[in-house]
Design a protein around this nucleic acid. Structure first.
Length: 524
RNA sequence: GGCGACAUAGCCAAGUGUUAAGGCUAAGGACCGCAAGUCCUUGAUCCCCUAGUUCAAAUCUGGGUGUCGCCUCCA
């Protein structure tokens, strides 16, 4: 299988041709969250970025095995659980559930495997024992440490030398360690802490060992892509490399990918600075697709500054694409067989090619999105034609669908859970069109205003009136019926019984029966 | 102190050797009863400063300035 995919590899600090170890298959591992809180926007970035990378690899035809772990055994979880007087594992599980609630809304596909630390103690302990046997690990009073100086390549990922690290060390030195840089593989349990049996007594794993043990279990030696936030490069990924390569003697992963940070006023969004925004709070104000679009509108390795204004800009941009997509769907209904669609076809083809070229360039989603805007403009221009060629529009729609699927963005689709309101809206559009033809703009505008109030927007175009509604709205159908009834009251008042009877008949066709009573009109 | 990244129009953001993508905003025009939307036109003679390399640089090299990150948990 051939591709022209270039990826920036943190390990070599270069862009490289992507060649998976096994032809046609990609094995990738992404460090997931420590689950002791809801995820914030900074956590969401790698989730969306690597989900998109995975989608693109699948688009290229690779069979991808995607593993994303949950750290559910950790000091922070233990502390939080203590505060809330809860079992640590129960707390971790709760936030794993909450994680999926958030990730699902961003249309992040589930990983093939979501391993948890708590369910891999045996693998982790065996891993540490293997390191002990090879002389890379040593025990001190129930703790087990990794001997950094025994691993000759230590520092190769983060570009540091051991001596630099020693001199710059801000960590309090634990005197029991042979060397200040040595890190814990296994930590002895203090009373009341969750603990597992091990050859070194009751305890729990250090932070880094889980990823070595679990990636090895599910992906084997030298898997293809290891991803995560840039702050994981050191020490987390550096230590993973040390552990894995010390034990297995083979490279841990071929390509190391790291995303840049979300910043607030140019400063990293982080839990310790306290300047973070929970994803779900943002989703109160913005559509998940807007957030996803915002995250992908900048290259994944660049810093990305956050504020509401930036999300509003993303929203406007996404609306432009949405409008185009909607107009395209509508145009399709009016289309036939004509031979004027050459330009659109070419634009669709061009978009597909350029989108691929952009993504091949280290997943340049910012540039890839620009190709969608180019396509939207061509489509919008074509839609002004009197005659629309069906197959050309279908081709454009297919390209939109395929490329948006890679980005994990859906546009103008029927949202799940939304009632079908096509029949009622068609009736309203006809009623309003009649009013407009009769120059009864008061009624026409009133209809538009009433619909706007319930979240439905009308747009009059050269090809008739289009409608769209922003949010997933339950009970929308009922609200629309109310609007129609209001319209009918006006016609009855004006003794326009032709219109009011038309409305009653049409509603009957839609399964809605009106009953006029002295108290007003009821419906069922 | 050590290591590293970045600096492009009002804003956001691509572009890593050869005419400066795209989006948002703004102005003018077209379709149009209005609204919304779409289309067209207008915007950096120039890419933080500076000295170089080159036929050619936003893109490479040296120096400077500024901002940020990692070196402690963090995506």
């Amino acid at each position: 299988m051939k591709n022209n995919l270039q990826v920036y590899n943190t390990l070599t600090k270069r862009r490289e041709q992507f060649v998976p170890k096994e032809e046609g298959h990609v094995r990738m591992y992404v460090c997931g969250p420590t689950t002791y809180n809801f995820i914030h926007l900074g956590n969401a970035r790698p989730i969306v970025v690597f989900d998109t990378i995975r989608r693109y690899l699948e688009y290229l035809g690779y069979k991808v095995i995607y593993v994303q772990n949950f750290t559910d055994v950790d000091d922070k979880i233990i502390n939080k659980a203590k505060e809330e007087e809860q079992e640590p594992l129960a707390l971790a599980d709760k936030y794993i559930t909450e994680y999926f609630t958030d990730a699902d809304r961003l249309l992040v596909k589930r990983a093939d495997i979501h391993p948890k630390v708590s369910e891999h103690m045996e693998e982790i302990i065996n891993y540490i024992r293997g390191l002990e046997e090879k002389g890379y690990a040593y025990e001190v009073e129930g703790d087990v440490y990794f001997s950094v100086r025994k691993f000759a390549d230590y520092g190769k990922l983060s570009g540091r030398s051991i001596d630099d690290l020693v001199s710059g060390s801000r960590v309090e030195v634990d005197q029991r360690k042979n060397d200040p840089l040595d890190f814990a593989l296994w930590k002895k349990a203090k009373p009341g802490e969750p603990a597992w049996n091990s050859p070194w007594g009751q305890g729990r794993p250090g932070w880094h060992i889980e990823c070595s043990a679990m990636s090895c279990k599910y992906l084997g030696e030298e898997f293809d892509i290891h991803g995560g936030g840039y702050d994981l490069v050191f020490p987390h990924h550096e230590n993973e490399i040390a552990q894995t390569e010390a034990l297995l003697g083979t490279p841990m992963a071929r390509y190391w990918l790291h995303n840049g940070f979300i910043t607030i006023n140019q400063e990293k969004m982080s839990k310790s600075l306290g300047n973070f925004f929970l994803l779900r709070d943002i989703l109160e104000k913005f559509d998940p697709m807007v957030v996803r679009f915002y995250l992908l509108a900048t290259h994944y390795r660049s810093p990305l500054d956050f504020d509401d204004e930036k999300l509003r800009v993303a929203q406007k941009g996404l609306e432009r694409l949405s409008n185009s997509y909607l107009q395209l769907s509508n145009g399709l209904k009016l289309s036939g067989h004509y031979d004027n669609g050459k330009k659109v076809r070419r634009a669709a083809e061009k978009a597909r090619i350029e989108f691929g070229a952009a993504m091949n360039d280290d997943f340049n989603t910012a540039l890839a999105i620009a190709t969608l805007f180019d396509l939207a403009r061509e489509v919008n221009t074509y839609l002004r034609e009197q005659q629309l060629d069906k197959s050309a529009l279908e081709e454009a729609q297919r390209v939109f669908d395929d490329l948006l699927a890679v980005l994990g963005i859906t546009l103008g689709k029927e949202l799940t859970g939304t009632e079908n309101i096509d029949d009622l809206m068609n009736l309203i559009v006809i009623l309003r069109q009649n009013a407009r033809v009769a120059k009864d703009f008061t009624t026409a505008d009133s209809i538009r205003d009433q619909l706007q109030e319930i979240g439905v927007v009308l747009e009059d175009g050269p090809k008739g009136t289009l409608w769209k509604h922003e949010e997933e709205a339950s009970g929308l159908r009922g609200k629309i019926v109310e609007v129609i009834i209001n319209i009918r009251q006006i016609s009855r008042k004006n003794k326009d019984f032709k219109t009011s009877d038309l409305i009653r008949d049409e509603l009957k066709n839609a399964g809605i029966v009106l009953e006029d009573t002295p108290q007003g009109t009821s419906w069922k």
